[in-house]
Simulated scan of single mutants.
Amino acid sequence: MIDSSVVLVAGDGRWLSPRRVTVSASENSPYWQADITLGGEEEFLQLETGEQLTLTMCGYTFSLRLDERGENAQGPAGRTWSAKALSPVAWLDTPYALSGDISFLAGTTAKEAVESLLGSVVTLAWSLPDWTLPTAGLAFTSATPLAAARSIVEAIGGLLESRPDGSVVARRRYRVAPADFTSAVPDVNLYDSEATVRSTSTINVEIVNRLTIGNGGASDSSSDRIEFEADTNPLSGTVRAWPSPWRPVSLVHTGRPSVSITPKGIRVWEIEETVEFKDGAARLSTPAQALLEVTWLHTDLGGVLLDGDTLTASYGLGYSLAKVRYSTRAYVWAVADDQVEEVQFLLEDADE
């Protein structure tokens, strides 16, 4: 919507001048999304990821945080700057929140568990029957706080939904029980005849062979690594990539045109794990950027050298266990599809 009532203010009180704003939310998403065309390059440069934004339009005030910003240049006179903002609860999910093991003691209620997962980031309104978690307790493995909260709410047929002010409500997915469908009075009736706009088009997909030419020798090789982690919604997930050697890359796919890829930038985090040294060498579960700490749990095999995901001890071909802490970095993309299918993701060297 574009009119004089649209107001966009940054967290420090700066008034911005958006050229276009689209705000949307879907049934399966726990947050609002605002797609914004900014007024100029100065606004683009001043905004930082995670910054608070307040958007007023159509009589509503939306509390948002900046998720990403972009620039599109089509010649000197064809430059535009854009930004995408999400409700604050999105910062409790990947890529902004790390996955981990989460557990609750027996006797905890569902509302108490969800409130503790959302923490101080958002306030929760509970509009569901509350229940006590199983007597054996409840545990999640490798889950973000938002993913765990959604699983608890969805267990009783509910969903988490952001309000414009940034708070979250846990409500019934269907406001009328199936047994009452025939007697319920609808607020609005929509029929096929009211679909006033319909379009159909065919898409020609370019299929080409790709040839990479380098100036290295025949012994040079690349060992890129790609991982996919599915969301609770099976049609979306996260792709992480560790290019080796590290270099600018982009993600492409071999699926249908409806497959979407949204860059989330480069993520850096720390990992701690126990590794087994055999013949003086060990393998990490994830390619490392830097080795931060090594604690020998058995025989001390001396200093340790890092090469990608391989560790080599300086004292020769011994055997031992070690607890290691290291940092890793990866490119992150959010991917989604509109139907279940097998999709191949590939890394492509980006233009520098």
Rank of each mutant, 00 (worst) to 15 (best):
M1E: 08
I2Y: 01
D3N: 13
S4D: 08
V6I: 09
V7C: 01
G11L: 03
G11F: 10
R20W: 00
T22P: 01
N28L: 10
Y31I: 01
Q33L: 05
A34H: 04
A34I: 05
T37L: 01
T37Q: 00
E41K: 13
E42F: 03
F44H: 14
F44P: 03
L45W: 04
T54D: 05
C58I: 08
G59E: 01
T61H: 15
Q74D: 10
G75C: 04
P76I: 01
T80E: 05
W81Y: 11
A83K: 00
K84D: 02
S87V: 00
A90S: 12
G100I: 02
A110Y: 15
E115V: 06
S120R: 11
V122F: 01
P129N: 08
P129V: 01
D130P: 02
T132M: 04
P134E: 02
A136F: 03
A136N: 12
G137L: 07
L138I: 03
T141C: 08
T144P: 06
A148H: 01
R150W: 12
A155M: 07
G158T: 06
S162W: 02
V168R: 01
V169T: 11
Y174F: 13
P178G: 06
T182L: 12
S183C: 13
A184W: 04
D187M: 05
N189C: 07
L190T: 13
S193C: 10
V208Q: 15
I213G: 07
G216R: 10
S219H: 11
A230V: 10
D231W: 03
T238Q: 15
R240K: 09
P245A: 02
S250A: 14
G255P: 10
G255S: 00
I261R: 06
T262S: 07
P263Q: 03
G265L: 05
E272H: 04
E273S: 15
T274E: 12
P287F: 08
T295V: 14
W296E: 05
W296V: 11
H298I: 13
D300Y: 02
V304L: 09
V304I: 14
L305W: 06
L306D: 07
G308Q: 04
G308K: 00
D309L: 04
T310K: 12
T310D: 05
S320W: 03
A322R: 09
V324R: 11
R325K: 14
S327M: 06
Y331M: 05
Y331W: 13
W333I: 05
A336C: 06
A336D: 13
V340Q: 09
E342C: 03
A350H: 09
